[in-house]
Amino acid sequence: MRRLLFLAPVAVLVLVLVGFFFGLKRDPSLLPSMMIGKAVPAFSLPPVRPEDRGFATTDLGGEPMLINYYASWCAACRIEHPLLMQLREQGVMLHGIDWKDKPELGYKWISERGDPYVRVGSDESGRAGIDMGVSAVPETFVIDRQGRVRYRHVGAVTREVWETTLQPLMVKLRSES
């Protein structure tokens, strides 16, 4: 028994090492969102498309939807853009916010590559994004029928992310009252 007690520090070391080993696989840039379960902080953004009315929190709610933060200067946004176009074709309610970007450049981006958004607003100062805890673009939030944030995805939305996480969540949110 006393001999076993001498092994206790070794056992503790092994446990800690196992913990650290699994910790290596975690991405430190993925921070937990503070907004989950909370209503989207009020914003009313000017348009990106000329002659458009922009995007405001009054457009939220009713049915589950996505808010995608993008920018013309954002490289990973190019990666997810084709998928966003497909989602739009499938009738997914996808709104866009052009974050920390000149609206002219944000407009150039969607007019050259294709415009996947239902509503799109310009957040040139970045404040609407900061209120949502956005740290970089692209970020995509799932909003429920009450206009509350239910999920935050950091980085490009890939087909895998859409099929395994976002789509099932949106289906579930649709069945909620």
Partner: peptide, 8 residues
């Protein structure tokens, strides 16, 4: 800021 980005 903590309300937006967390205690991190």
């Amino acid at each position: 800021l903590v309300a937006r980005y967390g205690s991190f």
